[in-house]
Design a protein around this nucleic acid. Structure first.
Lengths: 360, 360
DNA sequence: GCCGCCAGCTAATGCGCATTAGTCGGAAGG
DNA sequence: CCTTCCGACTAATGCGCATTAGCTGGCGGC
């Protein structure tokens, strides 16, 4: 008469009560044995064995929701992405991150929850309350820029462990892991200077993303380190590089003694594209007459071209670092709120010593 | 005295009870109002408004864990992989699957759990009980061949919803989604025949994977459909294609009137590799003198080569189809246990009409 | 004038687990 | 011989929500 009539089909997923029955102990004991027994309650080895055996027999796996509800943890890390990274041209960037995330998570004994509709940029990410789903996991990795501020703020305020991939200062207290663009950019400048370039230019888009600012900072630091001057025209900001950086412009700079042009990587790769086009139209040869460098990776459609000198963002490392930070937060909650990973210098084939002596 | 002393800091997140108090109703009513009230219980508009207002005021957000606990489902689909697919050369195959899986899962309102250590082929996949972790999800997708039979059998026996990507007959009752290699292979043969080829060969590795068998079946069916004969030597089985299929062998076949060589895709791509190498060494030109076709995708390292004629496995579609099947199983459990997705023909550049009339 | 009924709620219960108070049968102590 | 204590568990409780049984007060019907 007291027949169990579950509301939703239970799929035969065994619970602790079943394990307990099989082992001839109470549900509490099962919880104690399987949960690591942080209370230090003494349990006989034989009993422990019986419970473990029973659990194995039944294929018991704790219910994450229940666990969560009872204020424990799941060994689940969330991954939530706000940009439409999955199926588009930028897809590899997401995948690379994922590879690093996956490996590090595995190493630390966590499984991953991919919050869908987030990575495909579909309805999911924008829907109200979408971000709240991450509360199922113990903590969550965030990627992308278009983060809805308000829900995020609340999550952070509630103390939910979150780590953003990429620098992000927005909600106070949000942890992040970024690439060290500044150092890598300086390194590229150093390389150019070492080859003998005395005058070089940075082309960047006209926004104020931290990533752009960091690169400019590094670029200028690199110049300073090499003892090279920076004038007004050393950093070129343009919203429409394709239109403004034409052959004439490039020739003019070349005539002024500029022998190396450096572009920042952007979503579209437009700065780099404009630069290569302009050089070609100006009839200058790379790298014999003009050296070109790219502060990041080339756009996918330019894969066939000669490899640009510059640096690569170690996406996998970045993902791994983010997982490390997140699990640290979970473990003890150091207030370690940020970390930088270093980019790898890429020699490439677009840089050579300047052909003619630099003008004064 | 009855002061609330939560075990884990409650982070000040409001719950339904708080909303209820503020609105002057019961927690049940709040749940009813906010939960969509699927029971059709009548609630006065004024009350509804008050509740909504209160919820808004407090910034109430339902706790997903509690919600899932109460509803006895997680809205979680698992993804478990047995092969070391993640960081290796074959990585794209895994990624492609994932793209399709992700999109379809998102469309159906499921999140994904990536069981780690499975896809990275690390300790995870092999460890005892590793497969049991999937019970955390409502159902699970399986990829890879090296599936531990016993745990899998139990899962299936327990009625846990599982779908394997790729054909698989092993444990009776396991659902799967595969690519229709047979039809696609026949199509390639038909294409060759249509161009005038009268004698062609299939090179396959010496194992009995369903995938290989299907291709052979399709190949032979294609021949039959074109009214072409198949003799003993029409299908070449070899465990070491690189060694056995040398220039001499190829020249001999060519002398016999074979104008088209077809290779099956394998993990390593060795059959295709051997074929192209042999043709080159034999001094024959592709596709002018000899046509080559590949039943599948070329290995990644041969990406620069001319695109092989053949077909592509629609991995994303396959992933999506698998999710569809799995969610159907979850929803009502049709005993739909298998599905095939069709492969896309790829014209490529390694096939042309035979240069000389086919010998009898 | 009593019954039944219905609209509009509320009380109670359980999901699966972790945790906190016991409980119980001895062994040690006096 | 009775109290204390301890080892080894178990009973009970609550997490936040959904769901299912009520419960209540008014109104129409006969």
């Amino acid at each position: 008469m007291t027949e169990r009539k579950p509301r939703a089909a239970r799929r035969g997923r065994p619970r602790q009560a079943e394990v307990a029955r099989l082992a001839g102990v109470s549900q509490t004991t099962v919880s104690l044995v399987l949960g690591g027994n942080k209370q230090g309650i003494v349990i006989q080895e034989a009993t422990r064995e019986r419970v473990l055996e029973a659990a194995r027999t039944l294929g018991y796996v704790p219910d994450p929701a229940a666990r969560r509800l009872a204020a424990a943890r799941n060994n689940l890390l969330g991954v939530f992405s706000f940009t439409a990274t999955f199926p588009t041209a930028v897809e590899h960037s997401y995948y690379r991150f994922l590879v690093g995330i996956e490996q590090e998570a595995a190493a630390r004994g966590y499984d991953l929850v991919l919050f869908t509709g987030s990575s495909s940029g579909g309805a999911g990410a924008g829907a109200p309350g979408a971000l709240d789903r991450v509360r199922l996991a113990d903590g969550c990795l965030l990627l992308g820029r278009q983060v809805p501020a308000e829900p995020l703020r609340r999550l952070v305020a509630d103390g939910f462990p979150l780590v953003h991939l990429g620098r992000r200062d927005e909600p106070e207290g949000l942890a992040w892991v970024g690439a060290d663009y500044a150092t890598a950019s300086a390194e590229v400048v150093g390389y150019l200077a070492g080859l003998g370039h005395r005058r070089m230019l940075l082309v960047r888009e006209d926004d104020d993303a931290p990533a752009s600012a960091d690169r400019e900072r590094g670029f200028l630091a690199g110049l300073a380190a090499a003892g090279l001057p920076a004038s007004r025209g050393t950093v070129v900001r343009t919203a429409r590089p394709a239109a403004e950086l034409d052959a004439a412009w490039l020739r003019a700079r070349y005539a002024e003694g500029v022998t190396a042009f450096v572009a920042e990587e952007t979503d579209t790769g437009d700065a780099w594209r404009a630069l290569t086009t302009a050089v070609a139209r100006a009839g200058l040869r790379v790298p014999d007459e003009v050296s070109l460098a790219l502060l990041g990776s080339p756009p996918a459609d330019l894969a066939g071209e000669p490899e640009p000198t510059g640096f690569d963002i170690p996406r996998a490392d970045l993902g791994a670092a983010a997982v490390r930070l997140l699990t640290d937060l979970l473990a003890g909650g150091e207030r370690t709120s940020a970390a930088l990973v270093t980019c790898r210098f890429r020699p490439g084939a677009t840089v050579a010593p300047p052909a003619r002596p630099a003008s004064p």
